[in-house]
Design a protein around this nucleic acid. Structure first.
Lengths: 248, 248
DNA sequence: CCCAATCCTTGATACAGATCAAAACCATGA
DNA sequence: TCATGGTTTTGATCTGTATCAAGGATTGGG
């Protein structure tokens, strides 16, 4: 059976695909991966890694959501990345990171000790190439976020955030006879954390949610849920080009 | 003679080091690089690459400054990266980019056709590793900039920008008997471009320059120059931790 | 079941930075 | 030398978001 290049690996025990590994690698490599695997769970709010700490593990997020953030001396913080299941934590060839990793919800990681993982990477160019691809994906995402942080209004930020969640969780469920599909989203974070992600305050986030609800674009049945009623209007509100999606 | 790993290559014709190449590679690879090299110059303001355009070349910046930027439908733009001499343009394994590359000043690039360059990368793991390092450096820089865009005040943004220029151009020249060294900086861009980089308007940039000058922290002898009179005060104004520098 | 803690919403007000406008500055070429 | 067009500075005003403040909703524990 022919397996295409760069399809990510579904390993035996984890309910997710490990995005850092490619399916063309031989069974031998997969076995090596299996052997060095270990699981760790962190309750919501836990610091998984501090800035500057030595980085002994790399990991895939198996369940839950973790976040990368940077903090200023006086306490202002900015989230610089969101890690959803299947995302990869770790930097090949680097012993330290320049930001904090925090469990936003309860998080389970599938960890690999860094040293043997890097040895594996050196042996298998496909994995190295896949890691490079992931790094470039992260870079593109970071740059999109820079546009959001630097130029978008509060309303556009919220719309972009909800649109991103809809895309990433792929929960866009067609519904009813109308042309606009609706999506039920689970918010993995509090208003305060959303604010930190978007460069806003929690009050502004709350007000924008209320405004979008008032206009009938979304519904907010409870604090952790959003129903996208009119996805076209939501996407109009993001300020992005129509073809916001990246064509792989 | 022993050459340490990952020292970047100074090639025969360019006045800079190509950061994408490592010195441990054999002469053979260097020769291959030499052969596929070509130079292109772009006058200030030229579009070097449009978003979505096929990416046939990778390149090093030899002289001048180029910028990466993203634009919204309605014209708002945000610079998402600055390319100074020795910086690398291009994405191994990717045929497209998600932003525009513009010549900020007159720019000369040392170009390599993408296909043979990638073949070289595949043959030489050290180069691949170096490219990964560069991508991770860019990612760290992007994340620092996200903190700046999302949370810093106009004054902190300007101070951070000047401090970054001072570090990158390494023009920190000790001067006089005082404890605070001074630095003469050349600004490679207009107020408008600085504003686009910092997520501000040109008027705000100008006002903050004036304010820092009034306070005796900098001097602005002409539109394209800044003299840092008190670098300690400048760094205090960035809002960053004292050890803002990344220890390599 | 109630209490405490946390999270969320809404209102009133303040302010940093955007926007609008005009004048000063500077480089370039005729 | 002067006109010309682009860039920068400065001023006046406006506005979106932060800040301050209070009350309401939700959750978990005893």
């Amino acid at each position: 059976m022919m397996i295409p290049d760069f399809v990510d690996v579904k390993c035996s025990a984890c309910p997710i695909r490990h995005r850092a590994v490619c399916a063309r690698c031989d069974t031998e490599e997969l076995l090596r991966l299996e052997k060095m695997k270990s699981y760790r769970t962190f309750p919501a709010g836990t610091e998984i890694l501090w800035r500057g700490e030595p980085l002994d593990y790399v990991a895939s997020v198996v369940s839950g959501v973790a976040s990368l953030s940077k903090t200023m001396e006086d306490g202002r913080t900015q989230m610089v990345g969101l890690l959803l299941p299947s995302d990869f934590i770790g930097r090949p060839g680097r012993a330290k990171i320049e930001f904090d990793v925090t469990a936003t919800t309860d998080v389970t990681l599938c960890c690999f000790a860094r040293a043997p993982f890097e040895a594996l990477v050196i042996d298998t160019p496909h994995v190295a190439q896949r890691l490079m691809e992931l790094a470039l994906d992260e870079l593109d995402a970071a740059r999109d976020w820079m546009l959001l942080l630097g130029r978008k209004t509060a309303r556009e930020k919220i719309a972009t955030f909800l649109d991103m969640l809809a895309r990433r969780s792929q929960l866009i469920t067609p519904k009813g006879a109308g042309t606009a599909p609706a999506a039920a989203l689970h918010l993995p974070m509090t208003r305060d954390q959303i604010a930190n992600y978007l460069g806003l305050t929690l009050e502004t986030v709350s007000r924008q949610f209320s405004a979008l609800k008032r206009e009938g674009i979304i519904d907010v049945p409870d604090r952790r849920s959003v129903i996208v009623i009119n996805i076209d209007l939501l996407q109009n509100a993001t300020g992005d080009d129509a073809d916001g999606g990246v064509v792989a």
